[in-house]
């Protein structure tokens, strides 16, 4: 049995497999499938300053090897999170990290400051990459200057580990990665969904109510791998990698490209047991290759 422990920015993960924000609720639903303490960590659904109803139905479309969604950050806001959700998740025997979103810098700052007070949350993941909200969200993550600005503003109030989740909808991912590193990010997560669109030719209408939405699933894996690899070479902070991971082989590919920890997103919808299977598969891979620790494959891609 290989050593699966990973430490990033001072946070100990019992294995590199975590679940992606928006694809795992607050963990509650998955308790009916398996013991959550198997997981390295859980990134919970985005929390915003106040209640958001999200976008209109229909919110999803199936696309080749993937799906589009336009959920639009539906959540009950930070007050409700602190009073109702936190008590349910604070004693999970795994790392629970909160995805933080907003429309303005002050909203990000307000939410981050509140979560800073929650003892059992070791980190936040700043979502500057959601394509499904009209204001803010992805807008912060596509321009280097604003990416630095929002990261720095949150850094000033958030004293624990600050992860920043990047949007792939940019020309140069390394520029944004450097911008958030300069702003004080401890860890970079990538990627969020790719902006996409689906049309029903018969009705001549868009399939989802918002017309455009975020593409996820195996369809985006090659883009995600490329971005993890580019960012790994460009900055010195750890990377949490995701985008289309369906099985252990996919997860290993992300680690070889430079991810220290991986997230399982859309795969949870197809196989609720995906994450525990990936943990087993990584272990089996390491044993088969006589690799003592999962740490040894991070960025170990052999180029030429």
């Amino acid at each position: 049995m290989a050593d699966l422990n990973i430490n990033i920015a001072g946070i100990q993960f019992k294995n590199p497999v975590t679940t992606a924000s928006g694809c795992f609720g607050y963990g509650e639903e998955f308790k009916e499938f398996y013991d959550l303490s198997l997981l390295g960590g859980i990134f919970v659904k985005a929390v915003t300053g106040s209640n958001r109803d999200g976008n209109k139905y229909p919110r999803m479309a199936e696309t080749p090897s993937g799906m589009l969604n336009s959920v639009g950050l539906q959540n009950k806001g930070i007050d409700h999170f602190c009073s109702h959700i936190y008590p349910l998740i604070k004693d999970f025997n795994t790392r629970v990290i909160v995805n933080v979103s907003g429309s303005t810098i002050s909203e990000y700052v307000e939410v981050a400051a509140r979560i800073n007070e929650l003892e059992n949350i070791p980190a936040i993941e700043l979502n500057i990459s959601c394509p499904n909200v009209k204001h803010g969200g992805m807008a912060f993550g596509t321009v280097p200057e604003t990416a630095t600005e929002v990261t720095r503003a949150v850094r000033d109030v958030y004293k624990k580990v600050l992860m920043v989740k990047l949007s792939p909808n940019v020309t140069s991912i390394t520029e944004i990665a450097k911008a958030v590193t300069n702003g004080g990010a401890d860890v970079i997560t990538l990627i969020n969904t790719l902006l996409g669109m689906a049309i029903d030719a018969e009705t001549q209408r868009p399939v989802i109510a918002t017309v455009t939405g975020g593409l996820s699933g195996p369809a985006i894996k090659p883009v995600a791998l490329r971005m993890v690899w580019q960012v790994y070479k460009a900055v010195n902070i750890p990377i949490v990698g995701l985008g289309g991971i369906m099985n252990a082989t996919d997860a290993i590919e992300f680690m070889l490209a430079g991810a220290s920890v991986i997230q399982v997103g859309t795969a949870n919808f197809i196989d609720p047991m995906a994450a525990p299977k990936i943990i087993e598969g990584i272990n089996e891979y390491l044993d088969r290759h006589n690799i003592a620790s999962a740490r040894d494959i991070i960025g170990a891609l052999k180029v030429s």
């Binding site: 694809c23 609720g25 639903e29 919110r59 999803m60 959920v71 919808f269």
Partner: peptide, 11 residues
């Protein structure tokens, strides 16, 4: 998408 309450698509 999921059918068990996490993706919030079928509201």
């Amino acid at each position: 998408a999921c059918g068990y309450g996490v993706c919030l698509c079928c509201i």
